[in-house]
Design a protein around this nucleic acid. Structure first.
Length: 229
DNA sequence: AACTCCTACAACCGCTGGTAT
DNA sequence: GATACCAGCGGTTGTAGGAGT
């Protein structure tokens, strides 16, 4: 049984948002907050949009505190460094740049920054596409139930070690902070070199966190098998 | 003025992880 | 354990508007 697509329902509006729609969404979130569930929000707010579309509009455009101005050299520098280390994990990068959204940064990267870097002969590290990686996984024949089963097992384990995952996030934070602490440079060649250098510094931290999780997974499995006996 | 091309960015789509039942 | 739902993420597409001819 497949999942119903959320945005293909008949009667739902697509395309650019009108001022009236923006107002309805803003007013609703002002009154009831973001945490009421995006799925049900459009109906409650009187909008003919899907929840996903509402979320995107709010997060990327209407949310207070967004910085919609041009990117500063400092921001460019930070984006380059974070991209070199993290790849296209835009949400993670956006969290380190106040007022900027993942969509903003992604667009800016794809339309301006990448070209700028290429023109200067400074192509940053190429990271494997996350979506392609995901799609490759999906291409395996008839594996949805296997994946689900695997996911469930992992979910249970994850619940047990939630605290440990928090530790991993702390390490990621530590890494990002280390990058931010580096002095700003006007020259993008230096920025890329610095980023590579930083990647070498923080790599052991990330490897440590990944290994940590893998060990935990094995330990949990062993424990489960012992109990099963 | 009319057309084409290019750029920037808003919005969409498909997917995954987390969670509830 | 299986299934379904939801929120969020990242790649891609659509399009408005500006620049060039």
């Amino acid at each position: 049984m497949g999942r119903k697509p959320c945005c293909s329902k008949e009667g739902l509006k697509k395309g650019s948002w009108t001022k009236k729609e923006d107002l309805l969404l803003t007013e609703y979130i002002k009154d009831f907050g973001e945490g009421t569930g995006w799925r049900s929000l459009p109906k409650k707010a009187g909008l003919l949009r899907c929840g996903k579309s509402c979320r995107l509009r709010w997060v990327n455009y209407l949310k207070p505190g967004l910085n919609r101005g041009t990117f500063t050299p400092e921001e460019d520098d930070l984006i380059v460094r974070l991209y070199t280390l993290l790849g296209s994990r835009w949400s993670l990068i956006a969290r380190r740049i106040p007022g900027r959204t993942d969509n903003d940064i992604k667009n800016y990267w794809n339309t301006s920054l990448l070209k700028k870097l290429k023109a200067q002969g400074n192509e940053p590290w190429k990271h494997k596409s996350q979506a392609k990686k995901r799609r490759r996984k999906k291409e395996k024949p008839n594996v949805s139930s296997q994946i689900n089963r695997k996911n469930n097992d992992e979910n249970k384990m994850r619940r047990k070690k939630k605290d440990k995952i928090v530790e991993k996030h702390n390490i990621e934070d530590e890494v990002a902070t280390k990058i931010e602490e580096q002095p700003h440079t006007q020259d993008s060649t230096q920025a890329v070199l610095l980023a590579i250098k930083m990647a070498q510094v923080v790599q052991p931290l990330l490897v440590k966190s990944i290994l940590h999780l893998k060990i935990l997974k094995i330990k949990t499995k062993m424990k489960f098998l012992r109990n099963f006996k």
